[in-house]
Each structure stands twice: as structure tokens, then as C-alpha cells.
Computed example of a mutant assay.
Amino acid sequence: MTEFEQLEDDENYKSKTQIKREVEALQVIGTKLLALSKQQQLKVEMSETLRAALLEATRIKQREAMRRHMQYIGRIMRNEDHEAIAARIALFDSSSAAHNKLFHSLESQRDSLIGENSATEVQKYLKENPSIDIQHFRQLVRQSIKELAEGKKTSARKKLFKYLREIKETKLGINL
């Protein structure tokens, strides 16, 4: 058996092309990470080396220098938990499935809180989130129910949604 056949049989064998694709994928994650705001970057867990590289990238203006620096960020990403970083980035990206899923779950939660069984839903929500401002929460729910019954504008419902989103963001440790 030749050395090449042994390499093909090995389960851990990766071709040069496969390695190159993985490195390019890490560079793409690095590019998305760079596109986040400073506040959002602070919410992503990463090493200080990667954080410093992202800070350095904001100062680079030349195209070729930026390309080389993105390769450097890709190399740093090899030692990071890139799957967790990518998942956190997806929560910030409004076009991602994770962000949309979170958004729709908050909408349905708001609708159930102001729906037919609002009293039981409010009690259930308060048991799940005992650290929230109960008085403010109940006030937002009451205003939303009243607004819905009168068929008025949606300002109270928007405020309730925003409050629910803030609570969820605090739980997840992110800022959408």
C-alpha cells in the first residue's frame, strides 16, 4: 500500500482543498465579526488576541493590507470556539434564521400575554422571570390589552415587545 492510499484511508485525512475551504470559512466569520458594532463585539466571547486583531483591522485602510489581516484573523479563529462565535453573530444578523426565530418567538409570547388567557400567561411568565419589574410589566400588558380592545395604534404593544426583548437579551447576554 502506498503512502497516498494510507492517507486516503485515514479517517482524519483532510485534503488541501478542504483545509482551504475551512480557513476561508473562518475568514468569513472574522469578516462578519468585524462588521458588528463595538457593543455587539463585546457581547461575543473571544480571546484578547482576536479582540486586538479586530481593533487593529478598523485602522487598516489599504485593500491588500486588509486582505492579509483577514488571513491573520482566520488563523487566530482556528484556536477559537468558532461555532459559538458564529452562533452569536447569527443572533445579531437580522437576515439569519436564528434572529428571525428569536424575533417570532418574542412576538408570539407577546400575543399570548395579551390574548384570551392573559392572566395565566402573565403568571407563567412572572414565574419564569422573577427578577423583572412586575409593576412595569403588568402595566405594559394592561395597556396593550386595552389598546387591542379599542383597536387603536400599536404603541403599547411595541413597548411590551421591546421590554420582552430586553429581558430575553439579558438572559442570553446579548444586545440585538
Results as ranks from 00 to 15, higher is better:
81 D>T: 01
92 F>S: 11
86 A>G: 04
90 A>N: 10
85 I>G: 01
83 E>T: 12
73 I>P: 07
85 I>Y: 04
77 M>H: 09
85 I>C: 04
70 M>G: 01
76 I>M: 08
62 Q>R: 13
73 I>D: 01
62 Q>Y: 08
69 H>K: 04
75 R>S: 13
65 A>F: 07
98 A>K: 08
77 M>W: 04
71 Q>K: 10
59 R>A: 10
89 I>M: 04
95 S>H: 11
60 I>A: 04
73 I>N: 05
73 I>F: 09
63 R>V: 11
81 D>G: 05
62 Q>C: 10
67 R>K: 11
100 N>K: 15
77 M>F: 08
78 R>Q: 11
87 A>F: 02
90 A>Y: 02
93 D>W: 00
100 N>M: 13
75 R>C: 06
85 I>P: 04
69 H>S: 07
83 E>L: 13
84 A>Q: 09
59 R>S: 14
65 A>R: 09
94 S>H: 15
57 A>V: 09
97 A>M: 13
94 S>N: 15
86 A>Q: 04
59 R>I: 02
101 K>C: 10
59 R>W: 04
69 H>E: 08
63 R>K: 13
80 E>R: 00
72 Y>V: 08
87 A>C: 00
68 R>G: 02
66 M>P: 06
96 S>D: 12
76 I>T: 07
86 A>E: 05
83 E>N: 03
69 H>G: 03
68 R>V: 12
73 I>Y: 02
88 R>D: 00
64 E>Y: 03
69 H>R: 03
95 S>N: 14
101 K>N: 14
58 T>I: 10
61 K>T: 15
68 R>I: 07
75 R>H: 15
98 A>Q: 14
79 N>I: 08
63 R>M: 09
63 R>F: 14
85 I>L: 00
68 R>H: 05
72 Y>R: 14
85 I>V: 13
74 G>K: 05
75 R>P: 02
82 H>T: 02
